[in-house]
């Protein structure tokens, strides 16, 4: 069992991250008004990934926790990326 004291984030930090998340949400909506064809989806996914990263790092304390949890999360993301990648191979080659 870990005896390290838990990191406690202040309200100020939480509010700042919340502000950034709201800003990114507004950008997500705004960018749909710009005609970028396939890049619209890529942009939406990129912003969503950015938001998820912020939530993981700050709201879920990954930034302040032991490194092993960060490594586990990154490994899981690699796994999911690989699963999506293999699925995409089918779509690229099927049509």
């Amino acid at each position: 069992m870990s005896k390290e004291p838990n990191h406690i984030s202040g309200y100020k930090d939480h509010l700042m991250i919340l502000g950034v998340l709201i800003l990114l949400t507004i950008i997500t909506v705004a960018i749909t008004q710009v005609e970028l064809t396939a890049l619209n989806t890529a942009a939406a996914l990129f912003i969503a990934a950015l938001k998820a990263t912020l939530v993981l790092l700050y709201f879920m304390h990954l930034k302040f926790d032991q490194k092993v949890f960060l490594i586990m999360t990154v490994l899981v993301l690699i796994l999911i990326a690989a699963v999506i990648g293999i699925t995409v191979i089918d779509y690229i080659d099927r049509y």
Binding site: I86, I89, D90, Y91, I92, D93, R94
Partner: peptide, 11 residues
């Protein structure tokens, strides 16, 4: 299922 050839041999 109609999946692509490359996916089939990879799987």
């Amino acid at each position: 299922s109609g999946m692509s050839d490359s996916s089939r041999w990879i799987f």
